[in-house]
């Protein structure tokens, strides 16, 4: 069987998506049999992008010119470009203050006027290149990663979950943290597929898999506020992974150095 040539790259993020891949300890031997991780700087010495790739999994958000260059390079060389994790798909938790100029935020942390490394607003990969597939989650589920690789060998892309976290949660026969305990659970808005990981342990969903296919934000807001949560609190928690919740909506800017 042909080994798929794969690139695993990290832009700006916590490396949690790459780490989750490395955390598939039981499956690593099989993974290595079917995929050649030709470019994987976090785990291997090679740093040159050589030849064509069957797939490039790119973690992290776009926030530096260097990252943009790497991303474009990977796009050019890869048949499939995959946004690997919440940061890559939507900008992730670090995009929550994209309403404020970067310089202003940077001043709070570094003091000076210039943003170190020339960093700009965290943006999803799709703001700069064509993305063929999203692996969602912060971090993604191991099962989703493995399903992608199984599909890669079989020549298909996985079918993304079109359910809600609530549906997974109810199918596991959990009690509802929102309706029965009055907690701020975002499962009613969140794309399923994690088997309701958090609510099943009595922790409200924070929406890390991103927004579900068809959502009703107005009604969800009404329920949350009926449970006593202030608009600020809702938008803070909701804003971690849902841009829809942020006070000031801002279109992602495409940054083009040329």
């Amino acid at each position: 069987m042909k080994r798929e040539r794969v690139a695993i790259a990290g832009l700006t993020g916590c490396s949690g998506c790459q780490l989750t891949l490395l955390d598939c300890e039981d499956e690593l031997p099989l993974l290595l049999k079917n995929a050649d991780f030709d470019y994987f700087p976090m785990a291997s010495s090679g740093i040159a992008l050589k030849g064509e790739y069957d797939a490039a999994l790119v973690e992290g958000c776009l926030s530096t010119q260097e990252g943009l260059k790497l991303l474009r390079n990977l796009r050019e060389k890869s048949r499939l470009l995959v946004a690997f994790g919440a940061c890559a798909v939507s900008g992730g938790v670090t995009a929550i203050r994209n309403d404020v100029p970067r310089e202003e935020l940077s001043r709070i942390v570094y003091g000076g006027d210039a943003v170190p490394g020339g960093g700009f607003e965290p943006a999803p990969l799709a703001s700069a290149v064509k993305v063929d597939f999203d692996i969602t989650g912060c971090p993604p589920e191991k099962a989703d990663i493995l399903e992608f690789f199984a599909g890669l060998s079989a020549g298909v892309l996985p079918i993304p979950a079109r359910t809600f976290v609530c549906a997974d949660c109810r199918a596991r026969e959990n009690i509802c943290l929102l309706a029965e305990k009055g907690e701020l659970c975002l499962g009613v808005l969140t794309r399923g597929g994690c088997n309701a990981r958090c609510p099943s342990m009595n922790v409200p969903c924070e929406g890390c898999r991103g927004v579900a296919e068809e959502t009703n934000f107005a009604e969800a807001m009404a329920i949350f506020s009926a449970n006593g949560f202030s608009a600020d609190r809702i938008s803070e928690k909701g804003g971690r992974f849902f841009r829809e919740f942020l006070h000031e909506k801002k279109e992602y800017q495409k940054t083009d150095p040329d």
């Binding site: 609530c166 109810r170 509802c176 009613v188 959502t215 009703n216 009604e219």
Partner: peptide
């Protein structure tokens, strides 16, 4: 339909 969250809990249960 306006109030429905679309979560599908009703059908699951």
């Amino acid at each position: 339909a306006r109030s429905c969250l679309g979560c599908g809990a009703c059908s699951i249960c």
